[in-house]
Design a protein around this nucleic acid. Structure first.
Length: 463
RNA sequence: GGCGGCAUAGCCAAGUGGUAAGGCGAGCGCCUGCAAAGCGCUUAUUCCCCGGUUCGAAUCCGGGUGCCGCCUCCA
């Protein structure tokens, strides 16, 4: 079954065929590490990571590069404000990114290339672009000449001649055309700088991605990701300079993810406005955040709010409950269930893959998981047995393809106070003292403990 | 102004020609001492509006309205 992916460049969904059979190359424009990671970084990382997981599930080898832009104006600005080296700022934020990615079960990329580690590769590209007439040096800067190739603007649908007033040339910039962009920026006093044939300076924003993608993944990569806000100018410029160098298509599929919408509130970390991942992670179970992000197609915008996340928490628990009932995390693998239950499992499996094959439609795939969850619950209600447990295992496996269900239920250890109350309630129920039983249940609720009476007796749950 | 996207039930959200997934919420029922969880049923004759193509459109085309993103750094 072929996987189909929507491509921004051709504005169409096409069957995915990797450049090299059996091997998929993915490049994602990651963070410019000028600050702590925000929700948008998690979304684009997750979108790409789910593709990566699914390709691997489908038996492909995946080479996945996620880059860090570790030197730019704002990083320097911040470092100066703090009186430290630029690298101090970037290292700290890279660490934070990796930590929160781990927390949300986002698997590590194959490689995390950094701009400052590829200065040589960038120089080689820039030199080649100058030699072939696509770039020019001016006053210590080097600019890409957007008019040097007729197809500039093909990704974002822009035409060079449509540029309007308002593109002001910064003082000191010697661009021939306002849309020309810096490949190399001459160093201003006090800035970190690397020597180059055009004088000391640092890389422009776009060239790094071309250089790093080509170095680590080849001249034509299969899938290029990142947020939709990067389509112009970043990705547009990557295409221009890369294809001017190699003469080959830079990426076969442009799979940019939709942006995170924070509602009316402007991005500020004050009251209730989730902007940084740490703000979310401190209030929302990372598994729920991951589930929530997956419940909307990766290309659609998504709203982030505490309310939405809390709703997602309820919905996600619906998926986890049958797993917890069946002990899916520790149950040994067995033979597939038969009968109607077996059919329900096979159907969910088929539809799940169908949805994922269609441009990684995790929202639709999740819908089929809910259907399977109901079938599992029903089987469990009807007495369970090996078949019910194996159907729960199937649900667990399918969710696992999306990287869900990674936390096994905690082996709860309760404070003595709670255990005493619980024991008292068991006795009260034995005595059919319903009034006292309910009182104790309320008392436990005050302590944040839920009591559920089932056929196996009384169960305690947190929250 | 230019480019692009989106408008589906109270809310969230799938669905690119064949007669509206799924979740939350709400209601009824089963189960339960009562709850919770779970199960069953109900909750869009209809997909922003107006035309058109078609045997047939939420899905295609034209027009309109509304919202959003990008055009400056941004995942």
């Amino acid at each position: 079954m072929p996987i189909r992916i929507y491509d921004t460049l051709t504005r169409s969904k096409r069957e995915f065929v990797p450049v090299t059979p059996g091997r998929v190359t993915m490049y994602v424009c990651g963070m410019t590490v000028q600050n702590k990671p925000h929700v948008g970084h998690i979304r684009s990382s997750l979108s790409a990571e789910v593709m990566r997981r699914y390709f691997e599930h489908r038996g492909q080898e995946v080479l996945y590069a996620y880059n860090f832009t570790d030197v730019d104006d704002k990083i320097i600005e911040r470092a100066n404000a703090e009186g430290i080296e630029y690298a101090g700022v970037s290292e700290r934020n890279i660490d934070a990114y990796l930590r929160f990615a781990d927390l949300h079960n986002i698997r590590r990329a194959t490689v995390y290339p950094r701009a400052t580690q590829h200065i040589g590769e960038m120089h080689a590209m820039i030199a080649q672009l100058i030699a072939s007439g696509h770039a020019y040096a001016a006053d210590g800067d080097v600019y890409y000449d957007v008019r040097s190739k007729a197809d500039y603007g093909k990704l974002s649908g822009r035409r060079v001649d449509e540029l309007r007033e308002g593109y002001r040339i910064e003082p000191g910039e010697a661009k021939r055309d306002p849309l020309d962009f810096a490949l190399w920026k001459g160093a201003k006093p006090g800035e970190p700088a690397w020597p180059s044939p055009w004088g000391p300076g640092r890389p422009g924003w776009h060239i790094e991605c071309s250089a790093m993608a080509m170095k680590h993944l080849g001249e034509t990569i299969d899938i290029h990701g990142g947020g939709q806000d990067l389509i112009f100018p970043h990705h547009e410029n990557e295409i221009a300079q890369s294809e001017a160098c190699s003469g080959k298509p830079f990426a076969n599929f442009w799979a940019e993810n939709g942006l995170v919408n924070l509602g009316g509130a402007k991005m500020s970390k004050s009251d209730g406005n989730f902007f940084f991942i740490e703000d979310i992670a401190s209030r929302v179970d990372p598994e729920v955040t991951r589930f929530y992000l997956l419940s909307t197609h990766y290309r659609s915008p998504i709203e982030f709010s505490l309310e939405r996340l809390q709703e997602a928490g309820v919905a996600y628990q619906r998926l986890r409950t049958p797993l917890e009932r069946a002990g899916a995390w520790t149950a040994p693998e067995g033979s597939a269930p038969g009968g109607a239950l077996g059919e329900a499992v096979a159907e969910a499996d088929r539809l799940f893959h169908e949805a994922m094959d269609d441009d990684f439609n995790s929202a639709q795939a999740l819908g089929h998981l809910f259907d399977l969850a109901r079938a599992v619950n029903r089987a469990l209600d009807e007495g369970g047995g090996a078949d019910a447990i194996q159907s729960a295992r199937a649900l667990y496996r399918l969710g696992g393809i999306l990287g869900l269900f990674w936390t096994a239920p905690a082996g709860e250890s309760w404070p003595a106070e709670v255990l005493e109350l619980a024991a008292a309630r068991v006795q009260a129920r034995k005595d059919k003292d319903w009034k006292r039983s309910d009182e104790i249940r309320n008392a436990l609720a005050e302590l944040g403990v839920l009591v559920e009476d089932g056929s196996q007796g009384q169960k305690l749950k947190r929250k």
